[in-house]
Design a protein around this nucleic acid. Structure first.
Lengths: 136, 136
DNA sequence: TCCTACGATGGACAGTGTCCAAGTCAAGAT
DNA sequence: ATCTTGACTTGGACACTGTCCATCGTAGGA
């Protein structure tokens, strides 16, 4: 994770304690916290951190490509720090737990040219849905 | 679309003018309106229709499987009346326009068993992203 | 035509996210 | 080590989306 901080510093980021805490809270695979969850965990380490700062920092991390923003269910967005390893998501329809998964092959390949409506298609986001072992 | 009204009546729906108007507004392929857009168009035909009624009716249509709910961008949910013909979505990263598309093959097939974490996977929602002809 | 349970209404409320003016501080310059 | 400055943080107000609820209205069967 200090790799991340290094990369951010190299891009001219001012390394504040708030940003450091947000970056630390957001680490690992299969981590998909909402902004408020990030804020709650950040407050545990830095009691006076403001909600707006968490939103700002998450937005910046997304803009820099270090974190991926997910809109799974129309409620709060979730933030996925595993951005450097391309992956898709598997979601339990019952409890909502999310796992990072890696399908084989290129998801773009299955979209035929006549179904592209003249678009320049560059990316495919896939959400697999089903029941997790605990809910099945 | 009167097919839809027939199906709904057959399921015990009371056919009110409000529900009829919502069903009429939501018709066609490549239609992906937000709840407020549906409400605005419904008001044009039935000035006193309430926002809550539109939300209720949309929720019922989704529960009945007649309409698909989309959470594309974390803002307002969109409602897709093309639920009887399975399809995925192609979204312009710039202007946000959405087209219904039909990839070839089964998107579930490319998720290997060892990437399923014990889930019973039943569905895959794919969002293709790129630039539409007007924005490219 | 009448009844009545189901649906509509509209306003209050909650969750999520954005904006802004004022205060604070990281980090380069001296 | 201290100064300086502009980027960053703060906290509260605000906007948008969606939900809830008590009350009123009406579709459709008797």
């Amino acid at each position: 994770m200090s790799d991340l901080l290094e990369r951010l510093r190299a891009r001219g980021w001012r390394l504040t304690s708030q940003r450091r805490v947000v970056a630390e809270v957001l680490a690992g695979e299969h981590v998909h916290l909402t902004a408020d969850e990030v804020h709650a965990r950040a407050v545990a380490r830095l009691p006076e951190i403001a909600r707006a700062t968490v939103y700002n920092t998450l937005g910046e991390l997304v803009a820099l490509g270090e974190v991926v923003e997910l809109s799974m269910d129309g409620r709060a967005k979730r933030y996925d720090p595993n951005a450097r390893h391309p992956h898709q998501h598997l979601v339990c329809s019952n409890c909502g737990i999310i796992r990072d998964v890696r399908p084989s092959g290129d998801p773009l390949a299955v979209l035929p040219p006549e179904e592209r409506f003249g678009f320049t298609v560059s990316k495919a986001d896939v959400t697999y849905r089903g029941l997790c072992p605990g809910c099945a």
